[in-house]
Design a protein around this nucleic acid. Structure first.
Lengths: 215, 215
DNA sequence: TGCGCCATGATTGTATCCAATCAGGCTGGG
DNA sequence: CCCAGCCTGATTGGATACAATCATGGCGCA
């Protein structure tokens, strides 16, 4: 029973966050406080607090006396985030594999298949995200999980652009790596899973870095 | 020329941050908005924004309709942060060692000696922090650096408590590990330095975890 | 014609005031 | 005597009003 966020600033933050993640607010878009305030039938105060929150999550860029924009990443920043993920996500997976329940593993296997059968870009993105984040679920490192989720959020728009660019045919490497990863998870092979995940993220980073047309 | 933070909320945030880091605001202390506002001759609005900022940095805990407290970490949270640091800081150091200038290395060597000759706890803490953070300076990964600095900030109070507890005689392991680390840096031995740093943080984590009296 | 300056409008930052919420103590009943 | 419920004070959350700042466009001048 947590359905309704009590604070107005929290509601505004969540709505803006979703708008950014779904792409209805594109990177670089300006966010005017009064517009948002009017849209949510509130004053600018909660809007400002929401913007601060989103800035700390890396989704928004604030410039004093100037305004707020949906965060725009250049290639170097994307690469940096991927390199950090290469260190953090294997740790989360390594901590989690030993504690995943059989039900967890069955769910992950189902997601691997669902990902392969998801032609739609947004379905693919959502399922891929679910697969990875749920594979870390039993890690019992809440701060680490929060950091990882923030990275996925800030990268979301660029993942979408990249996914559109490579098309469904370009996903075979992803599918293959997911299968290998899934096998390691089923074997409870902690080190194997960590290493496969590291390589998975690294390959994606390298391909993303070559796609200069995204930025 | 950056001396004066223009925004009031920025000044308040910086002042509160320093108060927390120096320990004049102890973990668990309540922070009342009106008190702070009066202290800085401003209204509660900038104070609230400052508190949001500090919350996103992990220094403050906000509870809706209740108030703000200086963040208090339990042992599990400290351990988690150290384990994350074990993955992130070696990366920063590894990226940096190859790019450190001879002047950088001379400065780091000087810090190693200064740390060994710093009986005062606050001097020790400051120099130790300087040594590590400066060794990452050439990493060219600004987001990673920001994350690492945030971790050092949130851990500061617990580092102080731990340092007081072990006394000057308990620091020999630190000094020894710093010497080894420094040698690896001078050799430009990237992997050696990474591994030594990982072990350095891990040993500290384990000792901190046994000191149950800190929490 | 091109450059620099100033005025003006739009937008953000802050102050003050009011409403909503929570904690603690008090009272009354069992 | 103890517990439930309410009431009150304190504190935070939000709305409105005002001040400070910045960007844009027009004007004058070289």
């Amino acid at each position: 029973m947590d359905g309704g966020e009590a604070l107005s600033s929290g509601r505004v933050a969540e709505a803006l966050r979703q708008a950014i993640l779904t792409g209805s607010l594109a990177p670089g878009s300006r966010i005017r406080q009064e517009e948002v305030a009017a849209r949510f039938a509130t004053s600018r105060i909660p809007v400002r607090e929401a913007l601060r929150q989103l800035e700390s999550e890396g989704l928004v860029t604030l410039v004093p006396h100037s305004g707020a924009w949906v965060a725009r990443l250049d290639r170097a920043e994307c690469v940096e985030i991927y390199r950090i993920r290469e260190r953090l996500e294997p740790m989360a997976l390594g901590e989690s594999v030993g504690a995943l329940t059989p039900e967890d593993i069955a769910e992950l296997s189902g997601l691997v298949v669902a990902i392969e059968n998801a032609p739609d870009v947004d379905d693919f993105l959502r399922l891929d995200r679910d697969f990875h984040l749920r594979s870390y679920r039993r890690a019992d490192m809440p701060r680490l999980m929060a950091m990882i989720e923030r990275f996925w959020n800030t990268m979301q728009q660029y993942r979408r652009a990249y996914t559109v660019l490579i098309g469904t045919e370009g996903r075979w490497a992803v599918h293959h790596e997911h299968r290998l990863l899934m096998e390691a998870i089923q074997r409870r092979d902690r080190h194997g899973a960590e290493e496969l995940l590291r390589l998975h993220i690294r390959r994606t980073r390298r391909e993303l870095a070559t796609r200069t047309d995204i930025f």
